[in-house]
């Protein structure tokens, strides 16, 4: 069999295949639901209701989407330049560390100054963390996939060390957790008494800014050129290594904002379960959005909805909530196939 490029796909085709991917995912997941002895339709209904069936559910989904928008953007930016950053998890945690180090009283500043300072500091730390693998890639040819993956484990152990050492909350009853950040360092809630916080708005703004950078600036053009064809980019005089460095800084910074936003907006302190794999899920979010920064908002909300909905569903039906992870992973694979099929035709001989 071979693949033949298709002429530019029509809008209908562009929409049809991703839709088919969603249907395929639902069918595959239905088999698992049947294996669990439940009815797929009622399970899907419960997931949908748990994700968006009430004001509470909807706000919970948006809250869960917030870190995923940041990590999804981090991955989208990096993958666009073919910089394989699988380390968003580590960058997220470093962002959280910086937030509690500076946000627990070290800087006596009013909120309007302190919050931007914390954001900038978290971004700087995340950016530097990814700069390491980027330099190793460009200078020594060390594959960044492996280094960023391994750094996830190193950073998590580092955070664990801090939480049992210098950052340990003396009032924490022995739990490995940091002190709460001061009131000035906390992001306000968007609605009184609800969990949704300003971090969500910051995430939307970040997506718009990243969209402008990728579509409207020279850097964005260079990033795409490097991702598309590094030799060609070098030939036309684009400083490929420098572009990769800038991409790494942007990507690492974005992922770190997820950590900042979870600490400052939601949890208040740093724990070892700050992230429920948001760094890895960010990869799925970015791919579902076809690496489009604005698309990341929609796909993050979709993925968050599956997780929030599945949590609610598993309390009602006897289907393990890991079904959400299966669904998200399956949709990643079906979606990459769908995108391929919008661009190529399969010839069997």
């Amino acid at each position: 069999m071979r693949l033949e490029p298709k002429p530019a796909p029509t809008l209908a085709v562009t929409l049809l295949f991703p839709l088919a991917a969603v249907v395929a995912t639902l069918l595959l997941v239905s088999l698992l639901v049947l294996a669990a002895g439940a009815s797929p339709l009622s399970v899907f209904y419960l997931v949908a209701r748990g994700a968006a069936g009430s004001q509470f559910a909807l706000l919970e989904t948006l809250t869960r989407a917030t870190p995923l928008i940041f990590t999804g953007l981090a991955v989208a930016v990096a993958f666009r330049a073919k910089l394989w950053n699988i380390g968003a998890e580590a960058q997220l945690y470093i962002g959280g560390v910086v937030t509690v180090v500076l946000g627990t009283g070290a800087l006596p500043l009013p909120s309007v100054i302190l919050i931007p300072v914390l954001m900038a500091a978290a971004m700087a730390a995340g950016a530097l963390l990814l700069l390491g693998p980027a330099v190793l890639k460009t200078r020594f040819g060390v594959d960044e996939v492996v280094t960023t993956l391994l750094l996830n484990f190193i950073v998590l152990l580092f955070v664990s060390m801090l939480l049992e050492g210098v950052l340990k909350d003396p009032m924490g009853l022995g739990w490995p957790q940091s002190q709460k950040v001061v009131a000035e360092a906390q992001l306000p809630r968007l609605i009184q008494g609800k969990r949704l916080h300003l971090g969500f708005v910051i995430a939307i703004i970040a997506a718009i800014v990243v969209w402008i950078i990728t579509k409207k600036t020279k850097l964005g053009y260079e990033m795409r050129a490097v991702g598309h064809n590094p030799e060609g980019a070098r030939f036309v005089g684009i400083p490929v290594n420098l572009v990769l460095m800038k991409t790494a800084l942007l990507s690492g910074g974005l992922a770190a904002l997820a950590g900042f936003s979870e600490v400052s907006g939601l949890k208040g302190n740093l724990t070892l379960d700050l992230s429920a794999g948001y760094g890895y899920t960010g990869i799925v979010v970015a791919m579902l959005a076809m690496l489009n920064p604005l698309g990341v908002i929609a796909s993050a909300i979709f993925v968050a909805g599956i997780f929030v909905g599945a949590d609610a569903m598993s309390r009602a039906a006897k289907v393990p909530s890991y079904i959400a992870d299966v669904m998200v992973a399956t949709s990643l694979l079906t979606m990459v196939v769908a995108i391929l099929l919008t661009r190529y035709r399969i010839r069997w001989r």
Binding site: D325, L332, V336, L340
Partner: peptide, 25 residues
């Protein structure tokens, strides 16, 4: 299909891991 080995590999890891945990539970 010639899809990105990075993306598919991560996808297979996520799928295999989550299916395992689902089945275990």
């Amino acid at each position: 299909l010639g899809l990105s080995q990075h993306v598919v590999g991560i996808g297979v890891t996520l799928l295999a891991t989550s299916l395992t945990y689902f089945t275990y539970r």
